[in-house]
Design a protein around this nucleic acid. Structure first.
Lengths: 227, 227
DNA sequence: CTGTTTATGTACCCACGGGTTAATTTGTCA
DNA sequence: TGACAAATTAACCCGTGGGTACATAAACAG
């Protein structure tokens, strides 16, 4: 019933190199695409395997099972984003400029990290179960809060910021529109049209949200972009 | 291999009422729960059928296939939310109070509509493909924009609001933190703790975001909650 | 009361896809 | 140079779950 005439059972690839790291990286990159595109249950292991330069067996060899692969992907995008945040240096800037910079770069970072956004959405659909299991992620998230705290402290000390300015609340706020802007693009567009996603409108939104936050935090700040 | 001793092959329910509307409603309610909980690919038709008071056959009879059921669920939660928005009457309030009311009630509405939030998240994962196919949804979304436009117009006419105040941008903004607050609760908590989701912190966030928007829109407004 | 349409229930099919088995090659170290 | 571990391949297994076939009861028209 088998035994194809040509090359009996030894059509097996007869030559290959050992390169565990490259194989792992390759799997992880493809899996990131696929999980971001289709979600945890929507992504297909066979399809992921097909798109890699290796075989399905290797996925299980290195990552155990589908959930293990998904966790690795999740940790990967989280640490990538946080690493990019670490590059941002605001310690030298005066408080108002520093806060402005933090808001604008968060907005931009999110806009340019669609995989991250989608995977976080997916993880929220799963109630954060896999993120909570990870031990590396909680540690990663200090740096952005530390930066905001440092800026708030300086701003208050200099009598520029209102007393209520709170790092965690600010992060929640800044993340909210930066994230929503990307995460809900599809349904927002379907409901209200695509106008606000044009390049010029996006700049305006970024300027206005930044101004809005500064007006809330900085005493006597005039939100000029709203005129 | 079958033929259970007790009631041979006629264990079939021998008496039932025809009630198409109730059956459809029942299926839709359960399906809403299940799709919201597990997503489109994650939800299980057998499981949905089991939880209804009818059979899997009826799901296919009324909704065609899994995607048809999902679309019906999506349209259901959208129209429910928009209907609740329609109940909100701000035409009688003076502009500043009207805007305040719109922000606060959007915040609350989202906080109390977890199914809606989760289904919109899921729909965004699917790039809005099913929402775009629906012909009822686009029409639904006018009312909230109309309300904001009316308030903005009055505010500007009375010299209270800045010229830049734009209904669509405001809706985007108000939705963003109202939505994010619910949608990203799981990952935000996993990363930064649950403190901001306490009842008291949520009130503060609502007050501050409202104040923040008013300070951006209303000329000379003092965001007191930030002190 | 009979024929037809609508609504419902039961049992089944089968492909898709997550996961595994077993063999085979590559590299390494006595 | 030969044994042993690590890396890799191809082929297979089988449960899950979306979807269907078929029979039949309710409702209704004439």
């Amino acid at each position: 019933m088998n035994g194809s005439a040509d090359s009996p059972a030894n059509s097996r690839k007869t030559s290959w190199k050992k390169d565990p790291e490259a194989v792992k990286e390759n799997i992880l990159a493809i899996a990131t695409e696929e999980f971001a595109a289709h979600g945890l249950s929507g992504a297909n292991i066979n399809e992921i395997a097909r798109k890699t330069s290796t075989s399905k067996r290797m996925i299980y060899y290195y990552f155990g099972d589908k959930e293990g692969l998904y966790c690795a992907v999740l940790e990967g995008v989280y640490s990538a984003l946080r690493r990019s945040e670490d590059l941002l240096d605001v310690a030298g800037l005066e408080p108002v400029q520093a806060l402005r910079r933090l808001v604008e770069s968060t907005f931009d970072t999110h806009a340019n990290a669609p995989h991250f956004i989608r995977l976080v959405m997916i993880e929220n659909i799963h109630n954060g179960d896999y993120l909570r299991k990870s031990d590396i992620v909680p540690k990663l998230n200090r740096s952005i809060i530390d930066k905001l705290e440092e800026v708030c402290a300086r701003g208050k000390a200099m009598g520029l910021f209102r007393d209520g300015a709170d790092a965690l609340q600010l992060h929640w706020l800044i993340s909210s529109f930066s994230f929503y802007n990307v995460s809900n693009k599809a349904t927002f567009s379907a409901s209200f049209g695509t106008s606000i996603y044009s390049k010029s409108q996006q700049s305006i939104l970024k300027a206005r949200t930044t101004d809005m936050i500064l007006a809330a935090v900085v005493i006597g700040y005039e939100p000029k972009s709203w005129n």
